[in-house]
């Protein structure tokens, strides 16, 4: 059972209240990009065993999207943060480093 803290309404929401939104911080490659970049944007996804950054939506609650950092192996949640960012904030990175020293995920570490 996964319980995520919604940073918008402050509720500790059960997994069944939420809708999973896939990988976080995707960078869009649209018109003018190379075929490889476009393919990567459409299909290239991380599938880590360990630290993962994801998008979630509090679908049965306030309806807001947010980001979550968690471990796919243990379901440990390192933190949740605003959807209006393009990279994990410093306190989230520190929280992950404290539990998983030397972690990296795409270009973040």
């Amino acid at each position: 059972m996964l319980i995520l803290h919604c940073p918008y309404c402050g509720v500790d929401a059960d997994e069944t209240e939420l809708a999973a939104g896939g990988e976080a911080h995707l960078k869009r490659f649209g018109p003018g990009s190379s075929d490889e970049e476009f393919e990567g944007y459409l299909f290239g996804r991380e599938n880590p065993r360990g630290v993962h950054l994801e998008r979630w939506r509090h679908a049965h609650g306030c309806g807001k999207w947010f980001h979550a950092a968690r471990c796919t192996a243990t379901l440990e949640v390192f933190g949740t943060y605003s959807a209006q960012v393009t990279e994990p904030p410093a306190e989230i990175r520190e929280a992950i480093t404290a539990k998983r020293p030397g972690w990296s995920w795409r270009e973040f570490s």
Partner: peptide, 11 residues
């Protein structure tokens, strides 16, 4: 019968 409910940060 009257009241206000906080539904989300903008609702």
């Amino acid at each position: 019968a009257k009241g206000l409910l906080w539904m989300s940060p903008d609702e």
